[in-house]
Design a protein around this nucleic acid. Structure first.
Lengths: 242, 242
DNA sequence: TCCTTAAAATCTGTATGACAGGTTGTTGTC
DNA sequence: GACAACAACCTGTCATACAGATTTTAAGGA
């Protein structure tokens, strides 16, 4: 049963490659069956029979979806539908940066645009627990301020917590996808704030944002966020980031 | 040379699975060599030797990156670094929608946030050709207004053209990633505009945006865009979209 | 010498078979 | 009825084979 000898559909085959077809078949199966995260998918063997292709093809399809984090795979178990994850988006952004198709500044412009909105939404919709988590990240930035690495991680957590408090997972998805870029450039911005004073002022900015969210004042929160981004971008430009 | 018999690195193996390791090796190769779009990657055979794993593993890694559109593959040719493409992002968004982890309204909120910015940037940065392309899409909407399918495609092209005119590929990436969702819900909004008058008014809104961009007035352009989105969201809510 | 063309080497696409190891369902015993 | 051993199923990885596409090399002629 060599693949090219028995074209299952001699008429219309728009996408080139059996793997692409298999990927589509799997995603369509999810849609057609109305599967939810955690629900199991057909086994590779079943898919092999259904599509009448080799296991190689089916496996490459499953693996591709797994790489995009649309499904979860593990040995012995069937693949399951995955919860929303930022994996694929992160990789696309990283790819764009490393191949110099997008610049760090362009990412920051998008981040600013989005986070001006998430911070306003967070001020309006945050639960008490979310407000506490945001404030906590800001506090941890101050407490660890002699350890840049730690400050950075709490900074990233701070922005992700705000996105989560916006109660729109698409915002969370995008903000989180940018975290990788932030990890790669954050230190540069930090170094331009040479004095302790400048560094503490930057941390103060985060506390102001957290306070505004706690108070439920979207306009004030957005103002502080704008200021924060303007200074961050300025720091990057001063450091000569293209 | 059975895989599990000769652990190449008996000490630290953080990521579970050889395929993940291979994916990382490839992306790191791109970074380390400073490859640009179009540049060729090592052959599968070369990668197989370098990583000391089977071709199966290497192939699944390549295929995964291809599915995310980070690399281009075709028979006989070596894989090459891909230009920035929205493929993976679209699939993530689609997945979120079909598994009901995100709602259409949430996508529209993100679109509104982003396109309020792209339209302003487009007004400031558009070339004459870009302004013409945007206006052309609006005109084609009017000319084909008895054919909903055609109107939709020109509508989508309109928004993507604005994103392109923002001269920030990250915006283009995100806006384009949402086009799939738009294709799946657009008709619903169109139907709520039952009269020709209502439909033509909606098209007029697009022309107003195009004019503002042509005039180079970011504030006016953003105002028209806001109005457009508010009406679109209202139309979806009227139609009972969750 | 240079151009053309045919053969060889290389590469990807797909299929098949094999086996290790994990997971789940079944059965049989106590 | 509880528990343990076993069988069935499933994924992870490897090896091999071959078709078809592409690139490289070599040969031959102008």
């Amino acid at each position: 049963m060599q693949g090219s000898m028995e074209p299952t559909e001699p008429t219309s085959e728009p996408s080139p490659g059996l793997v692409s077809a298999a990927i589509q078949a799997i995603t369509q199966h999810i849609r057609a069956e109305g599967l939810a995260p955690g629900d199991p998918l057909p086994s590779e063997a079943a898919m092999t029979r259904q599509l009448n292709v080799s296991r190689t093809v089916v496996r490459e399809a499953f693996r591709s979806l797994s790489a995009m984090r649309l499904i979860d795979m593990s040995a012995g178990r069937r693949a399951t539908v995955a919860k929303l994850d930022t994996g694929a988006m992160s990789m696309v952004i990283e790819h764009g940066i490393t191949t110099q198709q997008i610049s760090v500044q362009q990412v920051y412009d998008v981040r600013r645009t989005i986070e001006m909105r998430t911070v306003a939404l967070a001020a309006l919709r945050r639960t008490d627990a979310e407000a506490a988590a945001i404030a906590s990240s800001a506090r941890l930035m101050r407490e660890n301020f002699t350890n840049p690495e730690a400050v950075m991680e709490h900074d990233i957590a701070f922005h992700e917590a705000i996105a989560a408090a916006s109660h729109n997972p698409v915002f969370s998805l995008i903000v989180t996808a940018f975290s990788g870029v932030t990890r790669r450039t954050w230190v540069i911005g930090w170094r331009t704030r040479s004095s302790d004073e400048a560094q503490l002022k930057m941390i103060k900015g985060h506390e102001d944002i957290a306070d505004a969210i706690l108070k439920g004042d979207p306009r004030l929160a957005a103002e502080h966020m704008a200021e924060h981004f303007d200074k961050s971008v300025k720091a990057l430009i001063d450091a000569g980031i293209a």
